[in-house]
Simulated assay, not measured.
Amino acid sequence: MKIIAVIPARYQATRFPGKLMQLLGDKTVIATTYQNVVETELFDEVFVATDSEIIFNEITSAGGNAVMTGQHDTGSDRIAAAVANIECDIIVNVQGDEPFLKTAPLRQLISVFKEDPNEEISLASLKIKLNDAQEIEDPNNVKVITDNQDFALYFSRSPIPYAREKSVHTDYFKHIGVYTFRKNALLKFASLPMRPLEVAEKIECIRYLEYGMKIKMIETNFIGVGIDVPEDLERARALLKS
C-alpha cells in the first residue's frame, strides 16, 4: 500500500489572502506545514499542490516537492488533479493552514484503511470536541455529527445538533480539515458536480455524503491552530513560542 501526503495550498484564500506565505517563526506557514508532514516519516512522498507560483517556488527552492494545478473550487479537486498520474493507494490531505498537526492523528487516519479489508470506507477525517459556546457558534468552525459507529452524518457551519431539549447533554465536535482518501474515491469526487448543500455551506466533504460515500471520523484531543483569519496567525505564533 503506497501512502502519500498532499498539501493543497491556494494563495488567494477568501478570508485571509496570502496567509500561507505569512511568517511563522523563521519559516512561512506553508513551509512549516510541509516540514512537519515530512518529519512524521509516515509517507512515501509528500507534495504541495498549488495554483500559485509564489507557493510553488517557496517549496521547491528549499528542496521540497510541489505540483502546479489549475484553478479548483475545493482542496479535494486540487488534490485529485495533482495525483491523477501518481501511483498511490492512499492519499492524506493535510491542509496548508494547519501547520501543527502531529504524527499520532495522521497514523490513526492511515490505520482506518489498513483495518478496512473490504474497502468500504471512502475517506477518514478528524474531529475534536468543542466546549466553548463562542467556538460552537463560530461559522469558521465546521461542525460534524456522526452515527454510533463514527461515520459522518452531516457537516455544517451552524451549531449542530440544535439542542431543543435543554435537559439532555449534547456534545459538539469541530471538523479538523485533514482527510485520508482512497485514490479511487478522490477521483470519483472530482468527477461529480456540486449539489446545493455543498454550495450553500461551502464545505467540500458534504459532496462525498451527498453521493453516498462513507466518511469515518476519528476523535482526537490534539489542539493546534487552523489559520483562517489574521487573529489565528497571532495565536499560532504564540503557540510556537510556548
Rank of each mutant, 00 (worst) to 15 (best):
S125Q: 06
C205T: 09
V142W: 01
A152C: 02
F173D: 00
K183F: 03
Q134W: 12
I176A: 05
N184K: 13
E115W: 07
N140D: 15
K188I: 08
K127T: 01
E210P: 07
R164P: 00
F155N: 06
N140Y: 11
A104S: 02
D147H: 10
D116N: 08
V144A: 02
R157L: 07
V199Q: 11
S111V: 00
A185G: 07
E198V: 02
K188Y: 09
A124V: 04
T146H: 01
T170R: 11
P196D: 08
E115G: 04
K214W: 03
I203E: 04
P105L: 00
E210Y: 08
V142T: 08
Y208D: 08
M213G: 04
Q149A: 09
A185I: 12
F155A: 04
D138A: 15
L126E: 03
E120V: 05
A163K: 13
L209G: 03
A190K: 13
L106Y: 06
K188D: 12
Y179C: 15
L101C: 03
E137P: 09
S158L: 14
M213N: 12
L186Y: 09
S156A: 15
S111R: 10
I218T: 03
I128R: 11
D138W: 13
D150F: 00
S156E: 13
E219F: 01
E119C: 08
L153C: 03
E115I: 05
R107P: 01
N184E: 14
F181G: 10
P161V: 07
N140H: 14
E137Q: 14
E165K: 07
E204H: 03
P105V: 05
L192M: 13
K202V: 15
K174G: 07
K114A: 03
K102S: 07
A190M: 13
L192F: 08
G177D: 14
F151C: 06
A185P: 10
E204D: 15
T103H: 15
I145L: 06
P193Y: 12
M213L: 11
E210M: 10
P117T: 04
Q134I: 10
L126Q: 02
N131I: 12
A185R: 06
L109K: 03
V142R: 06
P193A: 08
V168L: 10
E115L: 12
D147S: 02
G177N: 15
P161L: 06
L130E: 06
I218Y: 04
P193D: 12
E219A: 00
K216T: 02
K216V: 01
